[in-house]
């Protein structure tokens, strides 16, 4: 049996997963009790549970798709645990690729890891790289939350006065405020992720792989896969917006990814090998 899928590893993972479940159930029960004390209607509380569960199912399936995408290299256990605790789709793939690269393996997550030492190293990098929010949260959550609650209370009182003041003030003042550094913070996270995602996308278009390894550099197959994934996701996004199919939104990412992979299979099996295997940068 492959060491990555041994029963012992599944048992270790099960302990971690049980902890996550226990924590969620604990907070759910406490919040439910508090809701009843506050006089919130049971129907409202039940509706919150039902709508949240339904809302979650499609996104959870896309998280599962990432677990399966990482499975050929890492087996199922490590991606399962990593995406159940703190993990997210963008981070885990990048962290796994970086960790594998650090051990001198250039194929990233497309080849199975056969060395237990590399496997353990990848688990450490993925874990240590993502855990920082848990280190700072206990220190900053309470003061941040208090500030937010106080700001909410203050905002409710002088609202009318502020509106009157704003009307008398010149419009350019508002424009200046809009372009303050604080306003730019709205773009920081998207810009960070575009930089990160863009690196992998650009590499699929023009990156060179190892000369002796087939299909690890940019070529016909990588571009066909990329274009299919991007275009199909954008088309699905437009359809969901135009036809107001909100239920479709969470499915867009996994469907786009699967369609990209299907395009790779079709191209590889239908096109002549000299075209399908063509890699322009080696």
């Amino acid at each position: 049996m492959d060491f990555k899928s041994s029963t012992a590893l599944y048992l270790i993972a099960a302990c971690v997963i049980l902890f996550v479940l226990a924590q969620s159930v604990f907070f759910l029960v406490k919040a439910w009790k508090r809701g009843k004390e506050l006089g919130i209607d049971s129907k409202k509380l039940k509706n919150s549970i039902t709508s949240s569960a339904l809302f979650t199912i499609p996104s959870a399936l896309s998280v599962l798709a990432t677990v399966i995408a990482l499975a050929p290299a890492l087996g199922l256990v490590v991606p399962w645990v990593r995406l159940s605790v703190i993990g997210n789709i963008t981070y885990e793939t990048v962290a796994a690729t970086e960790a594998i690269n650090a051990f001198g393996i250039t194929t990233g997550i497309s080849e199975a890891i056969t060395d237990p030492e590399v496997f353990a190293g990848v688990a450490w990098v993925m874990t240590l790289g993502i855990c920082f929010s848990l280190v700072i949260l206990p220190f900053v959550a309470k003061p941040l939350h208090k500030k937010f609650l106080n700001a909410g209370k203050k905002k409710e009182e002088p609202e009318t006065a502020v509106v009157a003041d704003e009307q008398t003030e010149a419009a350019p003042e508002t424009k200046k405020k809009k372009r303050s550094f604080a306003g730019f913070m709205d773009y920081v996270t998207p810009a960070l992720f575009i930089g990160l995602i863009g690196a992998f996308i650009s590499n699929s278009i023009l990156g060179a792989g190892k000369k002796d390894v087939a299909l690890d550099g940019a070529g016909v197959l990588s571009v066909v896969t990329l274009v299919t994934a991007v275009v199909s996701s954008i088309i699905l996004e437009l359809i969901s917006k135009k036809c107001k199919l909100t239920w479709l939104e969470p499915f867009i990412m996994p469907i786009g990814m699967i369609l990209g992979m299907v395009a790779a299979i079709i191209c590889y099996n239908v096109l002549p090998p000299e075209i399908a295997m063509l890699e322009w940068r080696g």
Binding site: A69, Y187, I201, S204, T225, V231, M253, M257, A264
Partner: peptide
């Protein structure tokens, strides 16, 4: 199915990036 797993990176980041590209 081999090519699908070989090309998992462009598929994953293409689908993930599309959402960001549309919004931003």
């Amino acid at each position: 199915l081999m090519p699908a797993f070989k090309e998992v990176i462009p598929a994953l980041f293409g689908a993930l990036g599309a959402g960001y590209f549309v919004k931003h």
